[in-house]
Simulated scan of single mutants.
Amino acid sequence: MAMEIEGVHRIGDKELFCKAWKPDEPSKAKLVFVHGFNDHTNRYHDLFSILASRGVEVHGFDQRGWGRSVTKPSERGLTGPTSQVIADVASFVRTQLPSEVPVFVMGHSMGGGEVLMLASDPAYEDVTAGVRGWILESPFIGFPKGFEPGSVTVFFGRLAGRLFPHLARQSALPPQNLTRDPKVVESLKEDTLIHDYGTLEGLAGMLDRTAALNEGRTRLNKGVRSIWCGHGTEDKGTSYEASKAWVARQTQIQDKEFKSYEGWSHQLHADLPENTHIFAKDVGDWIMARLGPDDAQLKPASRL
C-alpha cells in the first residue's frame, strides 16, 4: 500500500497543494502528474496507488485556481495567463530534478496540453532534458466532434478574456460525458472541490494553447525522447482524432506510441471499474520498459 504524503509547493507568494504517493520499497521511477480542467489531484487516487505498488513514486499538485489550492471563492479558476500556468508546471517538475531514478511527466486533458506546451517551450529546455518520457491521457489538443465551439464564440471569448481577464464564467462538461461509471459520475457531482468555474483569461489561454498544438504551431524541444498517448474513441471531452494526428506528426520522435481505447470515455483512469487496472497497467508497463541503466543518469535541471 502506498504511503501518501501531503504538502505545499510555494511559487512566489502562492502556495499550491501537493501530494505524493510513495512505494513501500525504494522507488524505481518518479511520475510528475498534471491534472485537467475543473479537477484536482486526489481524483486520480486509484491510478496513483496502482503505479506506486509497482515502484513508481507519484507527485501531483492542485493547479492554481483548482482543488485545495483554492483558499477563497475569488480564486476559483484563477489560473493566470498561459505563461503563469506553464511556469507553475515547470516549477513543480523541477522539485523532482535532478533524480537518481528516471522522471516521467504525465498530463490529463487540459494538463496534457499544458505538459506539451512545457515540452515545446525553449525557455524550459533544462526541464525537458531531465525528463525521461512524456505521458498523455486524453490530452486537450482539439475539441471532440459535435462539441466544437463556433468561430464567433471563440473570437469573442478571446476578446473578452483580454478585456475582463478575471471575470469568472461557468464552464464544465456534464459528468456523464467524462466517464461511463455511474458511481464516478455521482462522485463528480458531489465533489465540493469541483467548482465548475474558469476565468475568461484562463479559458482563452486554454483555447490558444489547444489551437497552437492542433495547428502544428509548436515544436517539441530536442530533449524530448519518448512519448506515450492514450485516448478513448468515445471521448466527449477532447478529440481522439486530434490526439492521434498530433502523435503521427511527431516524426522526429522515434520512441512514440498512440494507444486507442475502443469505446472508452474521457477519464481513462476512471472509465469503468473493470478497466481501471487495464489503463494503469499500460501506463506502468510503458514506464517500466524505460528504466534501463542509462536512464538513471539524467542531465540535472537548474533550480529556480
Score class of each variant (00 low, 15 high):
Val56Ile: 15
Leu213Arg: 12
Lys222Asn: 11
Ser226Gly: 01
Phe164Gln: 08
Tyr197Met: 09
Thr251Trp: 00
Asp255Trp: 10
Glu190Asn: 15
Lys281Pro: 00
Ser138Leu: 04
Arg94Cys: 04
Leu136Pro: 05
His59Pro: 00
Lys145Asp: 04
Gly130Thr: 12
Ser27Tyr: 03
Gly237Lys: 11
Phe48Gln: 08
Ser109Glu: 02
Lys72Ile: 01
Ala248Tyr: 00
Pro98Met: 10
Trp264Gly: 07
Val283Lys: 07
Arg169His: 08
Cys229Thr: 13
Ala129Phe: 02
Asp62Tyr: 07
Gly12Asp: 06
Thr79Gln: 13
Leu173Ile: 11
Tyr261Asn: 12
Pro81Tyr: 14
Cys229Pro: 02
Leu51His: 06
Leu47Phe: 09
Ser243Arg: 13
Ile86Asp: 03
Leu272Val: 07
Ser109Lys: 12
Asn38Arg: 14
Ala212Val: 01
Glu201Arg: 15
Gln297Leu: 11
Asp282Ile: 09
Val184Tyr: 11
Gln250Glu: 15
Met117Tyr: 02
Leu51Trp: 09
Glu6Tyr: 03
Thr82Glu: 14
Pro300Thr: 05
Pro293Thr: 10
Asn177Tyr: 13
Glu75Ile: 10
Lys19Met: 14
Lys183Ile: 05
Pro182Cys: 04
Ser91His: 12
Phe155Tyr: 12
Gly112Met: 06
Ser69Asp: 10
Asp46Lys: 12
Ser171Arg: 14
Ile86Pro: 03
Ser243Phe: 04
Val58Gly: 05
Val185Lys: 13
Ile135Ala: 09
Pro300Trp: 06
Glu4Arg: 15
Arg10Gly: 01
Leu272His: 06
Phe17Trp: 11
Ile194Trp: 09
Thr199Tyr: 08
Ala2Gly: 05
Cys18Ala: 12
Ile227Trp: 13
Tyr240Gly: 08
Glu148Lys: 15
Phe92Asn: 03
Val127Asn: 03
Lys72Arg: 15
Ala129Trp: 05
Pro293Arg: 13
Met106Glu: 09
Thr218Gln: 13
Phe258Tyr: 10
Ser226Ala: 12
Pro98Phe: 14
Gly111Met: 05
Pro300Asp: 06
Leu291Tyr: 08
Trp286Arg: 10
Gly232Arg: 12
Gly292Val: 00
Asp46Ser: 07
Ala296Asn: 14
Ala168Arg: 15
Lys281Gly: 01
Asp88Tyr: 08
His59Glu: 02
Asp191His: 11
Glu262Cys: 02
Val103His: 12
